[in-house]
Design a protein around this nucleic acid. Structure first.
Length: 423
RNA sequence: GCGGUUAUCGUCUAGUGGUAAGACAACGGCUUGUGGCGCCGUGUACACCGGUUCAAUUCCGGUUAAUCGCCCCA
């Protein structure tokens, strides 16, 4: 016997009824984006590898070891997108959508691919919703995208914590880096192996360490805030002020350090304790230098990415079982003559009503078909058999009230069904 | 990439060195035709490959996968 083929590691099939929850989430996402004035961007699922090497940063883990890269038959190096920001920026630049002085708001929904070790809330194909607010340098834009994410969480009534930080711009980050090196170097031997390795490469990452032996040194490390330049400090102060102003609670967390190279100034994370180790549901920040580094005009921008799987997991943990209402109608044909008539009826009804129309094409008994109607969660069953045909009436059963009513066969049948189903 | 744990019907579980039990679901039926309940009936399940053994689903090793943690990230 041939062995079963299963979905690749780290990927999952989404099928009913779970797929219904995805549709519902994405409907909310599109509605939210419309309200905030964001337009959807759809880009290819793969891009030239160079885009990510330049955009994400070629020393990041994503680029160093997590990309699905392949060569096509023309010898081009392509990569399945591991994140959306670089492709969105690329597309905006390619089509000249980025003009000085004109802000653009984009959003996206779809899969990303990273070769990682799968875990709860971490997949090799994951799905992200994200926004990119391009062209505003002021803190209002930072707060706008944060408010959007919060809006989505609130619409589900789930409890997430917003952490924010500022990692400054290129200039103040250099100074801070020096300060960190000075702080950690004397303690080098006491640090964990990982941290020793990271110190020279990217001392900022040390702040993120969860190693017990690193903790005292991390806690005594100087906060970035002390090294921010005046402009960055002012920007951060305004972000906090505006968040207070629109009643979005937050925690300033100096240890938030994002793993992608392009972030500047504001960085933020929404975390949920319903998630275990992968607790970040949504993360983002400002990337004022990215567009320029990809060959575009100097255009400050800010955005976030939200993991749909992780959001659905936190909703799962929070939500109680929601009862689904009975909807639609089951057409119950008894015998071949009735079935032939009902094929037409079925087609007409599907054009006429916005609810499921079910029909079973096997030669089943009435009892069996009613059980199917029940399982389909249909509100009504329309029964047609030889008795009904000779009497000239089909029988419409209300499966909630358990009541029957005759409906005359003929061309009024479908309109009268439509009428009944409206109420 | 590293470490821990786990792997039995579609799902959730029991159990054993001599080829496996139950619940839920599914399917059929309950005197040709009126659902949810009830009753009766129906099962190609011990992940894969090796080893030990007369005999392995059970013990051992490996592989694969899931899960938890590290790293990193959504």
């Amino acid at each position: 016997m041939a062995s079963k083929i299963v979905a690749p590691r780290g990927t999952q099939d989404i099928f009913p009824p779970q797929s219904g929850r995805w549709q519902e989430l994405e409907a909310r996402i599109h509605q939210l984006a419309r309200r905030y004035g964001y337009g959807e961007m759809r880009t290819p699922m793969f891009e030239a590898t160079e885009l990510f090497e330049r955009g994400v940063g070629d020393t990041t883990d994503i680029v160093e070891k997590e990309m699905y890269t392949f060569e096509d038959k023309g010898g081009r190096r392509n990569t399945l997108r591991p994140e959306w920001t670089a492709p969105v920026v690329r597309a905006a630049l390619q089509h000249n959508l980025v003009q000085p002085g004109v802000a653009q708001r984009f959003y996206y929904v779809g899969p990303i691919f990273r070769y990682e070790r799968p875990q709860a809330g971490r997949y090799r194909q994951a799905h992200q919703f994200g926004v990119e607010c391009v062209g505003f340098k002021g803190p209002e834009a930072d707060v706008e995208v944060i408010a959007m994410a919060m809006h989505l969480f609130r619409s589900y009534g789930i409890d997430v914590t917003l952490n924010i930080n500022s990692i400054g711009d290129a200039a103040c980050r250099g100074k801070y880096r020096e300060a960190l090196l000075e702080h950690f170097r004397p303690a080098l031997e006491h640090l964990s192996e990982d941290s020793q390795r990271r110190l020279e490469r990217n001392p900022l990452r040390l702040l993120d360490s969860k190693e017990e032996r690193d903790k005292p040194f991390v806690e005594s490390a100087p906060p970035f805030e002390a090294y921010l330049c005046d402009a960055c400090r002012d920007h951060f102060e305004h972000v906090k002020k505006y968040l207070n102003q629109i009643a979005i609670p937050f925690v300033v967390n100096p240890r938030i350090v994002r793993g992608l190279d392009y972030y500047t100034r504001t960085v933020f994370e929404f975390v949920s304790d319903a998630l275990g180790a992968q607790s970040t549901v949504c993360a983002g920040g400002r990337y004022d230098d990215l567009i320029k580094s990809l060959g575009g005009p100097d255009t400050p921008s800010v955005g976030f990415a939200l993991g749909e799987e992780r959001l659905l997991m936190t909703i799962d943990a929070a939500a109680e079982s929601q009862e689904n209402e009975r909807r639609g109608i089951q057409l119950v044909a008894l015998g071949e003559v009735a079935r032939e008539l009902m094929v037409t009826m079925c087609s007409l009804l599907r054009y006429s009503i916005d609810a499921p129309v079910f029909m079973d094409y096997d030669d089943r008994k009435l009892l069996a078909q009613l059980k199917i109607a029940d399982r389909n969660n249909a509100r009504y069953a329309l029964v047609l058999g030889s008795e009904e045909i000779s009497a000239g009436n089909a029988v419409l059963r209300d499966l909630v009230e358990r009541s029957d009513r005759p409906l005359p066969l003929g061309k009024d049948l479908v309109p009268s069904l439509v009428e009944v189903m409206k109420s």
